[in-house]
Design a protein around this nucleic acid. Structure first.
Lengths: 241, 241
DNA sequence: TTCTAGTCGCGAACGGTGTTCGTGTCAACT
DNA sequence: AGTTGACACGAACACCGTTCGCGACTAGAA
């Protein structure tokens, strides 16, 4: 035993393997081999592979830089935070999938993350029940986008990517029957586009535009008729609190 | 050999096992046992477990009812479609995770699904590049929500759910340091809320509000400067002189 | 210093997984 | 009837996460 085992060391080693060889190669045996020991030894410090994965996610999330909430810049702060979060997730291939699987944010870093997102969202003027919804949408989208970005960049080689993406799919879509898939046909080149960066920014903007619209709608409704019987699901959620 | 094997039969059997015993129980051996044969026999009709899963997803998606696009009711049509899609995914536990993993919509049903979503979205007046973005956000959210709903309903018993959700988490959040997590503390009861249905509706409404806002912004910009980007022949003539 | 007690690392094994290979069987066509 | 070809499938391979219990090493008692 060259070096004393510890949770910290195990997580660190696992992250190295993850970055170097991908999520599929991350087995308990592989980690143990890297540490010069057997797989059984890991279970003294980590109860589960699942727990190990959550620890990995914790470590990745803890590296996301966060700033003090400034109510006037809430939208830009949200954009910036989403950017950083996705960057951190994408940097460690496969970790985003873990984030999607773990629904309950148990760890400290995950709580920090949620707090950093909720602050600006509440500053938008949205009522709290809708803040919860917007939080849901925004974080789910960020995670899902990271999963997609991972899968796009890691799973295939450059050759297979170009072939299977540009050739087979784009050409396949151009050959679709026009009477059955008019919209798909018209959107063809846009859907397979590889400029993920721009599309991510636009998606965040779209969600933020939704937040602004609903916040404005809410403040308008409150000032005009404070005790209205709203019928839309949005208002009913708001009322249920 | 009691019954001739076929892709169709294998997929059907797999879906039954999935519904009855969950995604974890869905192994090639299990399917083969159910069919009274060995696992190797399946590989004559299905090249992969991954392919089998995509076939399962295809089958589930093909059962989503779709209607003719009506430009005047585009928002309601979107809402309805998202509802049905999520219902179909949630009905077969674990299939939503497959939908998230498969980024490229290869199958026929997936293409139908995309077409049904793109139609109403284009009717909103959004420019096509933003339609692609909205499509991204909407479908990713629907899938991710279905994953979450699955995990919430299937993984635990009622006892563990009540204990671990309401007690441990809600009580845990109430004990958070107020100076570090003010927003989390204020939102506590709302985030762990189990009324997933209402929150899903509200989330879709939020995204649709974003679409409406961006569409309005776009049409405003176009009416203000109609001769933009060299589209008018007059302008191009004028510029060329 | 020697002997004992106890801790804990970890090799080996268990019960699973997806997938492949080669054999065996059976139906259909010549 | 004979040949051929397709297909079913038992067995095996290389993995996986996890558990058990042996054995080595440390620390305390004599």
């Amino acid at each position: 035993m060259r070096q004393q085992l510890s949770r910290e060391l195990i997580v660190e080693t696992a992250l190295e393997i993850l970055d170097r060889e991908g999520m599929d190669a991350l087995s308990m045996r592989r980690i143990a081999t890297e540490l010069g020991t057997g797989a059984a030894s890991l279970y003294a410090h980590v109860s589960n592979k699942e727990e190990l994965q959550e620890l990995l996610l914790e470590r990745v999330l803890s590296q996301v830089q966060r700033e003090e909430p400034d109510p006037d810049r809430w939208a830009d702060q949200l954009r910036e935070l989403c950017r950083r979060t996705v960057d951190a997730l994408v940097a460690h291939n496969g970790i985003a999938r873990v984030a999607l699987a773990a629904i309950v944010p148990t760890g400290e870093a995950a709580l920090d993350q949620a707090e950093a997102m909720l602050g600006p969202l509440r500053a938008s003027g949205l009522p709290d029940p809708l803040v919860a919804v917007a939080f849901d949408v925004l974080s789910l989208y960020c995670t899902a986008y990271a999963v997609e970005a991972n899968a796009m960049r890691s799973g295939e080689f450059t050759e297979a990517q170009v072939l299977e993406r540009t050739q087979q799919l784009s050409q396949y879509m151009a050959a679709l029957p026009a009477d059955r898939f008019p919209a798909l046909l018209a959107m063809g080149p846009l859907l397979g586009a590889a400029d993920g960066e721009q599309r991510f920014q636009a998606a965040i903007d779209l969600i933020i535009a939704g937040v602004e619209a609903l916040a404005a709608r809410e403040s308008r409704a409150r000032s005009r008729r404070p005790l209205d019987r709203g019928l839309s699901s949005i208002e009913s959620v708001h009322r249920s609190s």
